[in-house]
Amino acid sequence: MNANSYSVTSYVNRMSNGAGVAAKHASQPQMHSSQPAPEIDNREQYVKYINSASEEKLAGSIDAIKQYGPPIAMFRMSDIEKAANSEEMHGRIGRAIDHFEVEAQQYHIQELAIIKAGEQAGKSSQKILMEIVELRDQQSELFKMGTNWGSKGLAHPENYEKLIAATPSYVNYYA
């Protein structure tokens, strides 16, 4: 993932596994240019990695999943800043992240179960990681947007209607 083109707000950096990594990236200076950063599809990149990396690297990826915990939601702060309704977007993102974190915890439990069962069955790291890809494919649109999993980011303008659907109880006090 190209961390320099994404920002993680402070409410995402709650005390959890992986927060230190997110905080490190969030504290690094952001590169700004007149060209928008390319959309990143983490699903596509992950499948390419699984199909090309050595068994040793793939095993290291499994160890990282165990060590770092559930995924965190990431999005482009510039998408929020450029929105005509940036205050509402910010509020909706905050609400969506609360929902995302619940799903991410549940997802991680399932992810660890896949790893444990795969290791006990003697499956290769590649097979285990492909089962994790299948698990991610089954997650909600909110989860996929938050992780850029076959979807544009959580704050991307094309996902505004999906963001509204994910935050139905949000009240826009700025309207």
Results as ranks from 00 to 15, higher is better:
R14W: 05
R92W: 07
A59V: 05
V21I: 12
A113W: 01
H108F: 13
G69M: 00
Q30E: 06
P157Y: 05
S151H: 06
S7P: 03
E131S: 13
G18E: 01
H108S: 08
A165Q: 11
I114D: 01
Y160N: 06
S5F: 05
H108W: 14
T167K: 01
Y107C: 00
N148F: 12
E119V: 06
R43W: 03
L58T: 05
E158Q: 11
N85M: 11
E103V: 09
E161W: 07
I97S: 00
A22N: 04
S151A: 10
M15P: 06
R43C: 02
V12P: 03
I109E: 11
N51Y: 09
N17F: 12
H99M: 09
P71Q: 00
V133Y: 00
Q126C: 07
E103A: 06
R136E: 00
V133K: 00
E103Q: 10
K123Y: 07
E81A: 15
A19V: 04
M77L: 11
D63E: 14
G153I: 00
G18A: 04
V47I: 12
K144H: 04
V12I: 15
D98G: 14
I128Y: 00
L142I: 02
I40F: 11
T167C: 08
A121Q: 09
P36Q: 11
N4K: 08
Y173G: 14
E161R: 14
I132A: 02
I109L: 08
S169D: 15
Q110A: 14
A23F: 06
S125M: 02
D98Q: 14
Y49A: 04
P168E: 03
Q30F: 09
S5Y: 06
T167Q: 02
P168R: 05
I115D: 02
W149Q: 00
M89N: 05
S16W: 01
G118I: 07
P168Y: 05
A175P: 11
G146P: 01
Y6E: 02
M15L: 15
S140W: 06
G146R: 01
Q106P: 04
S151L: 08
S7C: 10
Q106Y: 08
Y6I: 08
P71R: 00
Q106T: 10
P29T: 08
H156F: 11
K162P: 03
Y174L: 13
A113M: 05
Q45I: 10
K123N: 09
K123R: 12
S52R: 15
Y160V: 12
M89Q: 10
M74R: 15
V21D: 01
N172I: 11
N85A: 13
G146D: 01
N4M: 14
I114M: 04
G150V: 02
A121H: 09
H108N: 11
S16A: 13
D41R: 10
D137W: 03
Q106A: 11
H90M: 13
